[in-house]
């Protein structure tokens, strides 16, 4: 069902227009838009992963080409910026998740930081495990 605004038109009331740049109106709104834009860094990281997989499929020369391309200054700069956005995503995601999924023990709500903490532990453990698999000498 859609709620029809009952104040759609009224000759005497003043309605302030909303600026297209509303997200620059306060730093909190700006931070919100940055948080939403972390999704672009996420998508970019998937693209990098797909490029890596494609180079692995194509052979050692393609892989060498991939590693060379990753060293280009503009690519490096892009990836460093994207990595910062990824960190913003991880931190905001872990901190906001307990609000969407409250945990109750014995009828009392568990404090949010206690719900978020295991996520950070999982993050560190998973990152270390992936790094170990990638870096270990076969």
């Amino acid at each position: 069902m859609s709620v029809q605004p009952s104040t759609e038109f009224h000759p005497r009331w003043y309605r302030a227009p909303v600026s297209t740049y509303w997200w620059m109106g306060s730093w909190r709104y700006s931070l919100f838009i940055l948080r939403e834009l972390t999704s672009v860094a996420v998508a970019w990281s998937v693209v990098v992963t797909l490029l890596l997989l494609r180079s692995l499929l194509k052979g050692p020369d393609a892989y060498a080409h991939f590693t060379h391309r990753m060293q280009a200054p503009w690519m490096l700069a892009l990836n460093i910026i994207a990595f910062c956005f990824l960190l913003l995503h991880t931190i905001t995601w872990f901190n906001l998740a307990p609000r969407a999924m409250p945990v109750r023990v014995g009828g009392k709500r568990v404090p949010e930081f206690l719900v978020a903490a295991p996520n950070y532990v999982l993050w560190v453990v998973a990152s270390a495990a992936i790094a170990w698999f990638v870096l270990r000498k076969s």
């Binding site: 990281s45 590693t67 990836n79 991880t90």
Partner: peptide, 28 residues
């Protein structure tokens, strides 16, 4: 994305290109 992606981009997009960590071989 929150749990797994940062480490992947860090390794392949930042750490290996900058030489902070040794680039793994193709075969590996």
């Amino acid at each position: 994305a929150a749990v797994f992606i940062p480490v992947l981009l860090f390794l392949f997009g930042v750490a290996f290109p900058l030489g902070w960590l040794p680039q793994p071989s193709y075969e590996h």
